Simulated scan of single mutants.
Amino acid sequence: MTDNALPESLASARERLRRALEDAGRSPTSATLLAVSKTKPAEMLREAWQHGQREFGENYLQEALDKQAALEDLDGIVWHFIGPLQSNKTRAVAEQFAWVHSVDRLKIAKRLSEQRPAALPPLNVCLQVNISREATKSGVLPEGTLALAQEIAALPGLALRGLMAIPAPTETLEAQRQPLAALRQLLEELQAALPEAPLDTLSMGMSDDLEAAVLEGATLVRLGTAIFGARG
């Protein structure tokens, strides 16, 4: 990237989100831009922080821990773990992150609950839903979401905040909206069934379907290449 490329692409991503929210008739503060920073060096994250970005999403644990150590002098960074989570990696995630988007089974949630340090606020978790029922994708199936949510909502040390999905790619805005609408409806069902849980989050929308996701109520949109350029 050139010297000005990252601030320009970050500004462009913010403007795209702002326009999408405006077109959807939503408040400009009702969705947050999550910068997906996997494979990008800590120096790029520092530059994004210098231009006001605070929320960063990481997929690979060791890489993320290295960046956290390199950037520990920066105030206000919020770290989101958004990749597949294995049992042997839950402790570091429970200790070092504020959010986990990829919880899809009770075993992982229980380990995060047990390993979350008592001195920290509850760990914000989203259930990953395999909304398009793809054999190659992680996530709880839609019909299993409520039962899993009920079990996780009862665990100490966790705050069940909502749902995350990565729908199968489609070509048109209307086709993109269908699985995202299904995810939104699932969240509404959880809100009705679990009124005590802080269920306010839909983590959905990436570079190819941001506008559709915003139309369907996304509150966290995940952009990587649009901000940082192609993976290195």
Score class of each variant (00 low, 15 high):
Leu6Cys: 15
Glu8His: 14
Glu8Tyr: 07
Ser9Tyr: 10
Leu21Tyr: 02
Ala24Asn: 04
Ala31Tyr: 02
Leu33Ile: 11
Val36Thr: 02
Val36Ala: 06
Ser37Glu: 06
Pro41Glu: 06
Pro41His: 12
Glu43Val: 06
Glu47Arg: 09
Ala48Asn: 03
Gln50Met: 14
Gln53Trp: 00
Gln53Pro: 10
Ala64Pro: 00
Lys67Phe: 04
Asp75Ala: 14
Trp79Ile: 02
Phe81Asp: 01
Phe81Tyr: 15
Phe81Thr: 05
Ile82Trp: 07
Pro84His: 11
Pro84Ala: 10
Ser87Asp: 06
Ala92Asn: 14
Phe97Gln: 11
Ser102Ala: 13
Val103Pro: 00
Asp104Phe: 11
Leu106Tyr: 00
Ile108Cys: 03
Lys110Val: 06
Gln115Ala: 09
Pro117Ser: 01
Leu120His: 13
Pro122Ala: 12
Leu127Gln: 07
Asn130Trp: 14
Ser138Met: 08
Gly139Gln: 04
Gln150Ile: 03
Glu151His: 13
Glu151Ala: 15
Ile152Cys: 03
Ala153Thr: 14
Pro156Arg: 13
Leu158Val: 07
Leu160Trp: 10
Arg161Cys: 09
Ala165Glu: 08
Ala168Trp: 08
Pro169Phe: 14
Thr170Cys: 15
Glu174Gln: 08
Gln178Glu: 15
Pro179Leu: 13
Leu183Ile: 12
Leu186Arg: 08
Leu190Arg: 03
Ala192Lys: 10
Leu194Met: 10
Leu194Asn: 07
Leu194Ile: 03
Glu196Arg: 07
Ala197Trp: 12
Leu202Glu: 04
Ser207Phe: 06
Asp209Phe: 08
Asp209Arg: 00
Leu210Gly: 02
Ala212Cys: 05
Ala212Pro: 00
Val214Phe: 10
Glu216Gln: 03
Thr219Val: 03
Gly224Pro: 09
Gly224Lys: 04
Ala226Phe: 03
Ala230Arg: 11
